[in-house]
Nucleic acid binder design. Structure first.
Lengths: 350, 350
DNA sequence: CTGTTAGCGCTTTCAT
DNA sequence: ATGAAAGCGCTAACAG
């Protein structure tokens, strides 16, 4: 009963129930069955009921590949992240997921593990799925990847950062500015000798470091020895290790900005263990405002990012372009950030 | 140049470069081009080179939907998780991703947000993609979902927990046993008045609570008042709140087991704030051994789960069944767990 | 090693 | 409101 014309189960078919089977059972043509499922109002109630009954009795499940091939719509959105262990991405993904799922879209997820050469490969394989939209992390795609993305004529949103020349659409914030502002904030509180510790040093960490450096230069107290970075993966342990290294060499430091909360938390944990008082002996600031930041002892001064909202917005931009065939105006959205002052730094250094 | 028979760009095609275009340019038949891409060794080097050149010149990208329809292989694995905010799932997903990606599979991700009625809907939509395999969290799928899964004739792995009657394959560990052992471990150290605090109370939390209860009963010191649960979502804050509630009512408690590390960490943070000494005034144990557990002050006694390995194993089971058309023997794998004793509890209560 | 033919399951287009 | 015919882009089956 695999099709009207062929009552044997063909060797190629999987013996799966098809729309023709449903149509036959309901006594209608396949196209009517198709319409009953996609645009119910186009089919008389009488036939509609018959068709629904047939669907239920046979346990019909549409074949997505066939639908995509015929309609050139896949209802798939590809998402490329550098990592999932980094807690910012699950939050981002939640926002994307919660917006896309109700709209009938599915998420194809890929993970570069922060290896930029992986990105091109992943974009290529994801494009084979002809996704209806693509979300990529960051703005540093290489030229070939950009060409691929452009050539696919698929809506693209670059997230996390802002760029002057988006491939298509762009939702994010300025890591440079956020970090610059944080350092300025500390300087306004009276801090002068401020250090910077970073790890992994992906493009966003780099730009946060640049923000720090510029703020220091603008205050005429820049000192390259106050900067310590590592290519290793971020972790609490690494934060503790780098902190020890930098603070031992430069006990004159008044504050240290970390490229993310994990490193900063590691430093705070280490201070607790070593009996170093935060913020008295050394002040500490992080980045991202992960859930644990406000629970540390002392609570961590950091920069809060609306991750879930960024995910939502990126998904909405995609949906807008899919529906209207043109991007929203403006094609770029700055989700901004907020400096969260907590007890790991002073408001007024005295 | 959309096809041999039709030199106009048909209105239905997206104007995308097809395999026929490549074949035409290379002067071969489409099937030869197809083989050159899928089974290079089947095609003479001469033609192969021509075909590769054509692919590059035209920027050909295969159409996955067409391939799937023709070959009834989608190279897609669907993964259903209850959450991504819960840090155990990103780790699990990494293991799955790292095993599946090199094998040429893509991951379709869905998230139930711990709402069990979502699961059936998600399974249904994911099945429309005809995935080559499915990974679902837990063993509590409702009957209709099980029937759907079975009817799809797609390899299925249930993860996180162990069950006597897997739908297909099963990789996990016994939450009951792990929790039971943890409590026994504390009892052996001399603890008697042990409490339990849980939140969200998904099936796995439930079984961890059962493990606690049985261990208490087996020691003849069970006391229902020592158990406090909440349906709210897990968080550090909630851990602190529930801790305060239970410990205020029952200051005689010697130790409290939390259904996960987040709650336990929240309690430790609260103790630090309130000057309650851990483990002296109260001992605390968690579950999952998240990265921060060993960094807390004091470090947290907890149960370690090989999440990444569990993900890998589940993916390997899937690949095994896809390749061999039969599941590995046994069809079930216990990844086990390990009790990690740290300073938040005593080894010997004296 | 290469080609021909047919068809995967659905939806578009064009009739009625 | 319903249907017939054609085709989306690719690969299985069967030649040669």
């Amino acid at each position: 009963m695999s099709s009207k014309k062929n009552n044997n189960i063909s060797s190629r078919s999987m013996g799966r129930v098809t729309l023709s089977d449903v149509a036959e059972k309901a006594g209608v043509s396949p196209i009517t069955a198709s319409r009953a499922l996609k645009n119910p109002q186009q089919v008389s109630e009488k036939l509609r009921t018959k068709i629904y009954d047939a669907v239920n009795e046979l346990g019909y499940i549409p074949n997505h590949a066939a639908r995509s091939l015929a309609s050139s719509e896949t209802k798939i959105i590809s998402v490329i992240f550098p990592s999932l262990s980094n807690a910012v991405f699950p939050d981002l993904l939640d926002g994307i997921h919660d917006t896309l799922t109700p709209a009938g879209y599915r998420i194809l997820l890929a993970n570069t593990h922060y290896e930029s050469d992986q990105e091109e490969i992943l974009v290529r394989t994801l494009l084979e799925q002809s996704p209806d939209g693509i979300i990529v992390t960051g703005i540093d795609q290489n030229e070939r990847t950009q060409k691929l993305l452009l050539g696919a004529k698929t809506p693209v949103v670059q997230i996390m950062e802002l760029t002057d020349s988006p491939i298509d659409m762009n939702v994010g914030f300025s890591h440079f500015q956020a970090s610059y502002d944080l350092v300025r904030h500390l300087q306004n509180a009276g801090y002068q000798k401020i250090g910077f510790i970073g790890a992994r040093m992906d493009p966003r960490s780099q730009r946060r470091m640049e923000g720090y450096k510029h703020a220091m230069q603008d205050n005429n107290i820049s000192n390259d020895n106050y900067v310590l970075t590592s290519q290793s993966h971020t972790s609490f342990k690494l934060g503790a290790k780098l902190f020890n290294q930098l603070f031992t060499q430069h006990p004159e430091l008044e504050a240290i900005c970390f490229s993310n909360d994990d490193l900063a938390a590691g430093a705070i944990f280490e201070c607790n263990r070593r009996g170093i008082s935060v913020p008295k002996d050394i002040s500490i600031a992080g980045f991202n405002d992960l859930p644990f930041a406000e629970e540390l002892t002392p609570p961590l001064t950091t920069v809060s990012i609306p991750l879930y909202e960024m995910g939502k917005k990126a998904a909405e931009y995609l949906l807008h372009k899919i529906v209207n065939r043109s991007h929203p105006t403006p094609r770029q959205h700055d989700v901004s950030y907020k400096i969260i002052e907590r007890k790991s730094t002073y408001s007024h250094l005295t």
